[in-house]
Amino acid sequence: MAVPAFNTPLSVLDLAPIVEGGDAAQALAHSIELAQHAERCGYRRYWVAEHHNMEGVASSATAVLVGRLAAATRTIRVGSGGVMLPNHAPLVVAEQFGTLATLFPDRIDLGLGRAPGTDRATMRALRRRLDASHDEDEFPQDVVELQGYLAPLSRSQTVRAIPGAGTEVPIWLLGSSLYSAQLAAYLGLPFAFASHFAPDLLLRALETYRAGYRPSAKWPEPHVMVGVNVVCAASDEEAAHLFTSIQLRFLGMQRGERGPLPRPIEPAELETCWSAPEKAQVQRMLAASAVGSAQTVWRQLGSLVAQTRADELIVAGAIHDHAARLASYQLLAARP
Rank of each mutant, 00 (worst) to 15 (best):
A2W: 05
V3Q: 11
A5V: 11
L10I: 13
P17N: 14
I18T: 14
G22W: 13
A24Y: 15
S31K: 12
E33N: 09
E39M: 12
Y43T: 05
R44D: 06
R45A: 04
H51M: 09
V57D: 08
V64C: 09
L65P: 11
L65R: 12
V66L: 13
L69M: 09
A71I: 09
G79R: 08
S80H: 03
S80K: 02
A89L: 01
V92K: 05
E95F: 02
F97L: 05
L100P: 11
D109S: 09
A115E: 02
T118K: 02
R120G: 00
A121S: 07
L130Y: 05
A132K: 00
A132V: 11
S133V: 04
E136T: 05
E138F: 04
F139A: 01
F139M: 01
V143A: 00
V144M: 06
V144G: 03
V144P: 03
S154T: 11
R155A: 14
A165C: 09
E168L: 01
P170F: 07
G175A: 00
S176M: 04
Y179P: 00
Y179V: 00
A181I: 00
Q182S: 06
L183T: 00
A184Q: 02
Y186P: 00
G188D: 00
A194N: 03
S195F: 05
D200W: 13
D200Q: 14
L202E: 04
L203E: 11
L206P: 01
A211L: 08
R214V: 04
P215A: 01
A217C: 02
W219K: 00
V224F: 02
V224N: 03
V224A: 10
V228A: 15
V230S: 13
D236T: 11
E237T: 13
F243C: 04
F243L: 03
S245P: 06
I246W: 03
Q247S: 13
E257G: 10
R258A: 15
G259N: 15
L261D: 15
P264D: 08
I265G: 02
A268C: 02
S275C: 10
S275F: 09
Q281V: 08
Q281Y: 11
Q281W: 12
A288R: 06
S293K: 12
Q295M: 09
V297E: 13
V305T: 05
D311C: 00
A318M: 10
A318Q: 10
A323L: 15
A323D: 15
R325A: 08
R325D: 09
L331T: 12
R335Q: 14
